[in-house]
């Protein structure tokens, strides 16, 4: 087996495992803050690792076209950059919107609406 294939399979499996972890967290965790905590991190790294595996596969696979070896990985790199820029900020924005409209938060003592400090 080609060593590049093994590396690509490993990287993409780790990415898929992270996406699976995020999905289980989305289903199992109690409230919106915990769910955003699970999906916001796992999606960013999981999708980036899957695209990284695709980049390595595209560069080292036996295509004859030289142009495809440059342009398609460059586009995937831009997508990874976009994920790292947009995904945490979107998570932050949804979380802050949920905080502003006073979504109740799960604690061990029961559901609780977190109040903002009046001194600020």
């Amino acid at each position: 087996m080609n060593p590049v294939d093994i590396i690509v399979t490993l990287i993409m499996s780790v990415g898929a495992l992270l996406m699976l972890t995020g999905s289980i967290g989305l289903l199992r965790l109690p409230d919106v803050y915990c769910r955003m905590h699970a999906t916001g991190k796992c999606d960013t790294l999981g999708e980036s690792l899957i695209l990284l595996g695709l980049i390595i596969y595209q560069v080292y696979s036996g295509h004859e076209l030289v142009l495809d070896k440059v342009i398609v990985p460059a586009k995937m790199l831009f997508i990874i950059l976009f994920f790292f820029l947009a995904n945490p900020v979107a998570t932050h924005a949804i979380m802050k919107a949920a905080f502003i409209i006073k979504t109740p938060m799960w604690t061990k003592q029961g559901w609780k609406v977190w109040q903002k400090e009046e001194s600020r």
């Binding site: 820029l85 947009a86 900020v89 932050h92 924005a93 802050k96």
Partner: peptide, 8 residues
């Protein structure tokens, strides 16, 4: 008023 969202 959110500096993170505005910067990005």
């Amino acid at each position: 008023d959110d500096i993170i969202v505005r910067t990005v």
